[in-house]
């Protein structure tokens, strides 16, 4: 333990570790930002079922069965969000609206992952 002051508690190895972790996080975020845009499709991955997709333009209420029971997902102008879930802590509901490509709402107890994907890219327009 260092004896004087709070800051000398950090060693050079600590600073290198913190710097490396920060750089990795920033690089991963920058990589995701490059491809970030308002997504067009909600991908619903429920444990034990094939992933399903739903266009974000098609507003409405979805009911998805998970490991614990039914989760309800609202799709509206602001994107998609979980409005009811059978889990204890409701972290998926507190996640709020997801709209950008790559946004996630996860409910681990109910085995549910909601992910926003982009619209299909247009390679060419043919007349």
């Amino acid at each position: 333990m260092a004896e004087e002051g709070l800051w000398p508690a950090l060693t050079w190895a600590d600073k290198i570790l913190a710097f490396t972790v920060a750089i990795c996080a920033i690089a991963l975020i920058a990589h995701e930002r490059d491809s970030a845009a308002v997504g067009g499709v909600l991908v619903i991955e429920a444990t034990g079922a094939e992933p399903a997709t739903r266009m974000l333009a098609k507003h409405g209420l979805l009911r998805v069965m998970g490991l614990l029971g039914e989760s309800q997902i609202e799709i509206g102008a602001r994107g998609a969000h979980v409005i009811a879930a059978p889990c204890t802590h409701k972290i998926c509901m507190r996640r709020g609206w997801i709209r950008q490509r790559g946004d996630l709402a996860v409910c681990v107890p109910n085995g549910l992952v909601l992910r926003i994907a982009g619209t299909a890219a247009v390679d060419a327009v043919v007349r």
Partner: peptide
């Protein structure tokens, strides 16, 4: 839950 989307 087996969903790789978690790694995002």
């Amino acid at each position: 839950i087996g969903q790789s989307g978690l790694f995002s």
